[in-house]
């Protein structure tokens, strides 16, 4: 099984590209890949309920949604307002995932 760490740094404020990238993540999950989509910087705005509908498909099909706790606090978003299934992570979690030999990383 292919494994991916996909990193979205722009989120909805950056325009439609962020939605397409979340759609890419959802497609990889549907194709059987092990996917963690990590939202960081302004990307965390995508994890607010209703902001990025593509995340529903990602989570429903077994993908993981990681949200950077630092970026979330910086942007004053309450974790209670995130889509159910989102997991708050620290950069050390990302580093560990990145260092797993089988994981491919894509930054957007």
């Amino acid at each position: 099984m292919h494994a991916y760490l996909l990193i979205e740094s722009g989120g909805p404020p950056a325009g439609p590209g962020s939605h397409r990238f979340a759609g890419d993540a959802a497609q990889l999950v549907r194709e059987g890949a092990d996917v963690a989509l990590f939202l960081v910087e302004n990307g965390v705005a995508g994890a607010v309920r209703g902001a990025m509908p593509e995340l529903d498909a990602l989570l429903a099909d077994g993908g993981e949604l990681w949200v950077d706790a630092f970026s979330l606090r910086q942007r004053a978003v309450d974790a209670e307002d995130l889509v159910p299934g989102a997991r708050l992570v620290e950069m050390r979690d990302v580093a560990r995932k990145l260092l797993s030999p089988a994981v491919r990383v894509v930054w957007h």
Binding site: A45, R49, A51, R75, A76, V77, D78, E80, D81
Partner: peptide, 8 residues
Amino acid sequence: LSALGARA
């Protein structure tokens, strides 16, 4: 403000 979540 709403885009930051219901509690913002």
